[in-house]
Amino acid sequence: MTGRPTSTLRDGARTAPRRARLKPTNIWFALPAMAFVGLFFVVPLALNLPLSFSSWTTYRSEIVWNGFSNFSLLHGQGYLINAIWVTLAYSVVAMLVQNVVSLSLAYALRDSTLLNGFFRSLFFLPVLISPLAAGYVWRGILDPAGPLNAFISMFWPGFDFAWLGNITTALPAVAFVDAWKWIGLTTLVYIAGINSVPREVNEAAYIDGANAWQAFWRVTFPMLAPAFTFNVVVTLIGAFSAFDVIQAMTGGGPGAATRSINVLLRIQWGLGNFGAGSALGLIITVMVIVAAVPLVAWLRRREV
């Protein structure tokens, strides 16, 4: 009794690949997301270009084309090159600290044991603190009266140094705090990457006479490449938008030693120079594109 329908169904499946499936008109489901991203991400991104070359300020309501005067205004004050340099140095330091520390932590905590779980959770705590709050925490640690100097004084009596008041140390210090805040998250990405490497591959390397160091660099690390690419690109580019930590710790000082592009943008905004602010936003966008494309391409080539 049931024989016939079953056989026709089977025949049908064989002759025409049964795509009685949902037609690809699912576009309606994607439409709200497209509308939101289009209006609040793509439109501002496109608007940024004309606004960067416009004379929009608090004092003038009409917005007209004014060529490169926003850029030359910033450059003339000597702010522009400094801000780009500060942002780049900050990003490189934050990226290096973050990836070196989290890769080491991930390697130490790669096995899912109870004790490792405790340490993973502990190192994840800073991720939950807002970047601004993290800035205040470390402003306390690095204060001349703070715990860091107190610790150094144990070996070097009378040690007194203003880490955030010194032109040389302030920038690496704020960049370090940015890395500190996010390391818990990148560590988890690296743990996932390390554990995706089959155990047998590592064991084979040991049997062939490799030591732990060699096994890591020759076997595990190349297979970690997707996680490495992701983390390096995300941490570097993320730091191009540096603002919160700096605002909490130094406000851009001493002098202009930690005045990143976004801190300068905030200053220009306060002065009512909206065109100059847009120009700074455009510089970050260009920097991200310039850094991301070759970096992704280069890192991809190193992947197995």
């Binding site: 991104l45 940024n48 606004l51 938008s241 905004w269 847009s278 970050i284 991200v288 594109i289 991301a292």
Partner: peptide
């Protein structure tokens, strides 16, 4: 990847 642009927003 691309950070949102503030002032045009």
């Amino acid at each position: 990847l691309i950070p949102p642009t503030l002032i045009p927003t």
